[in-house]
């Protein structure tokens, strides 16, 4: 190793970023607890986004100046890889919740199991999934569910296709076919945006027609937890890939040096795999 590892001298973005995160979270807390302060929250959010913009801009500039060697590239790869692993564990907690509720919590509430005393709380309760009638009658459950073979199937096709188109774009970039890479990346972005629009339509229908709401008992809770965080991650992915498109248009990336693009692609495939899990366990089964 050559001793060329680049250690930036100083940077104001980390400290400013921490402060921005603090303002944003305090603002959100004040909104939730006291019902005021949305301006603080908005300012904090804008500040967080601004810091991300400038921090990433510094990294892009340094990368374009050729300050990063192969070892730095591996640092980024390890960093992104372990970050995605942490995201997998985040979703694992939510999938575990879904599994636990369906396999243990609801049957136990229905009196199953060695102890079977939980049934004393709500003797009339019958376990079912999706849970249409929560034990406590003051909580009104959903009266209908989203059919997996309509909008969710369409969305599955969108996301799976987008993973393929992104791979085509990546291969093209590696071959030096920049126009092809650009075009397939645009197709990917359109598919991602379509997914988000369809998800929005689905949420609207769930809330207005099916009675699937956050406070409709555990079915609504898990439904929105899993699909909501997934949708949020798709949004991050779309923004990331949009930045990659802008960088391609500005002439960034070479055939063998484009880890930012690759990291975005890793993230996109991760979001896609999570969706497959959602489609199977939230919608189909």
């Amino acid at each position: 190793m050559s001793g060329s590892y680049y250690v930036p001298e100083t940077s104001k973005w980390p400290a400013l970023g921490s402060a921005a995160v603090g303002v944003m979270m305090i603002g959100l807390g004040v909104v939730l607890v006291h019902g005021v302060g949305s301006l603080i929250m908005a300012l904090g959010t804008v500040a967080v986004l601004a810091v991300m913009w400038f921090w990433f801009r510094d990294v892009v500039i340094e990368s374009r100046q050729g300050l990063y060697d192969a070892q730095m590239d591996r640092s980024f790869r390890w960093g992104m890889g372990w970050f995605i692993f942490s995201e997998i564990m985040f979703f694992a907690a939510f999938f575990g919740t879904l599994y636990y509720v369906r396999t243990f919590a609801l049957p136990w509430l229905d009196g199953e199991g060695a102890k079977g005393i939980a049934t004393l709380l709500w003797p009339d309760f019958t376990a079912s999934w999706p849970l249409m009638n929560p034990p406590d009658s003051s909580i009104s459950g959903p009266h209908d569910i989203v059919s997996p073979w309509q909008l969710p199937l369409v969305n599955t096709l969108f996301l799976v296709t987008s993973s393929i188109t992104l791979t085509v774009s990546h291969e093209a970039l590696k071959e030096g076919l920049r126009a092809t890479a650009r075009n397939w990346l645009i197709v990917t972005l359109v598919l991602g945006a379509c997914f988000l629009i369809v998800q929005g339509v689905e949420y609207y229908e769930a809330y207005t027609h099916y009675g699937i709401t956050l406070d409709a008992g555990i079915y609504g809770s898990t439904f929105f937890l899993l699909t909501g965080f997934h949708g949020f991650h798709v949004t991050i992915g779309v923004v990331t890939l949009a930045v990659m498109l802008a960088r391609i248009l500005k002439g960034h990336f070479s055939r063998d040096d484009h880890f930012a693009f690759e990291a975005g692609a890793w993230y996109w495939h991760f979001v896609d795999v999570v969706w497959i899990g959602l489609f199977l366990f939230v919608y189909v089964f």
Binding site: P135, S138, L214, S221
Partner: peptide, 13 residues
């Protein structure tokens, strides 16, 4: 937000 993850009344635990 009124979810029921840890509330048995809504089917949580």
């Amino acid at each position: 937000f009124g979810t029921s993850f840890f509330d048995a009344g809504g089917g949580g635990d």
